[in-house]
């Protein structure tokens, strides 16, 4: 269980995130939405202990993330390209991740077969380093590296960016499958309301660092309240 308590983050006196209380229970797919600058990436960075909270804390299974690194052993994440080792080939990068999580070569090969549809023959065996792939393929590499460890907790920041429509559908299916079969708790942010609506069973709406909405959602259904909010925001 992931808990955010009195969590705030300020930059030069400006509050960019202010979450009094938020609990993410085991299992389920939580969608994080909001306009640019809402604080989505900041929240994820705080959960992953990449930045220091101004106040409050994040705990996973009761242990503060900034004090006990045990959460790293069961968490997979991909926020942006800075997660990638660009001078590695995809094979080497996956092997690096597997070694970090004590996954054997045979097991790694077996797990990578689950992502063959997503890779679509464009990732492995190309004999080039990650830097030389397109943005879309690099995004795929990062997502696969986060998911192949079969994490209990998965954090993906705008995973549908740069992906073609087919790949977006595949990624959405993989996320749903992981949550259903492994019980993974997934926190995913996106500007793509359709993708979020299709897979999430809980939606969090952030605006200027504050949690405006926290509601249950039926995957596959449109959320009229959410659409109304963004239409209204566009009109302001």
């Amino acid at each position: 269980m992931i808990t955010l308590s009195q969590l705030t983050k300020q930059y030069k006196g400006v509050t960019v995130l202010d979450v009094p209380e938020l609990t993410l229970n085991e299992g389920g797919i939580i969608g994080l939405v909001g306009n640019n600058g809402a604080g989505k990436t900041t929240m994820m960075s705080l959960i992953l202990d990449l930045i220091k909270a101004t106040s409050g804390q994040v705990t996973i299974d009761g242990k503060p993330v900034n004090e006990d690194p045990v959460w790293k052993t069961f968490t997979g994440s991909y926020l942006d390209a800075s997660f990638l080792i660009e001078f590695y080939t995809p094979e080497e990068f996956f092997a690096f991740v597997a070694e970090a999580y004590s996954i054997s070569r045979e097991e790694l090969a077996r797990r990578l077969t689950q992502y063959e549809t997503l890779m679509d023959g464009e990732i492995l065996g190309k004999k080039k380093v990650i830097h030389d792939f397109s943005n879309g393929n690099r995004q795929k590499i990062g997502i696969i590296a986060a998911m192949l460890v079969n994490p209990r907790f998965l954090v993906l920041d705008e995973p549908f960016n740069y992906l073609d429509p087919s790949s977006q559908i595949v990624v959405a299916k993989l996320i749903s499958q992981m949550s259903r079969e492994l019980g993974t708790t997934v926190l995913v942010s996106s500007h793509n309301l359709n993708s979020i609506s299709d897979i999430c069973d809980r939606i969090l709406l952030l605006e200027k660092g504050k949690l405006l909405m926290d509601k249950a959602h039926v995957p596959g259904e449109k959320d009229a309240e959410l659409e109304a909010y963004f239409l209204d925001a566009a009109g302001r």
């Binding site: 992953l48 202990d49 690194p69 790293k72 800075s82 997660f83 970090a100």
Partner: peptide, 12 residues
């Protein structure tokens, strides 16, 4: 440093 986020969020 170019990919430290990827290292820090993993058990390395």
């Amino acid at each position: 440093a170019c990919f430290f986020s990827g290292i820090w969020t993993r058990p390395v």
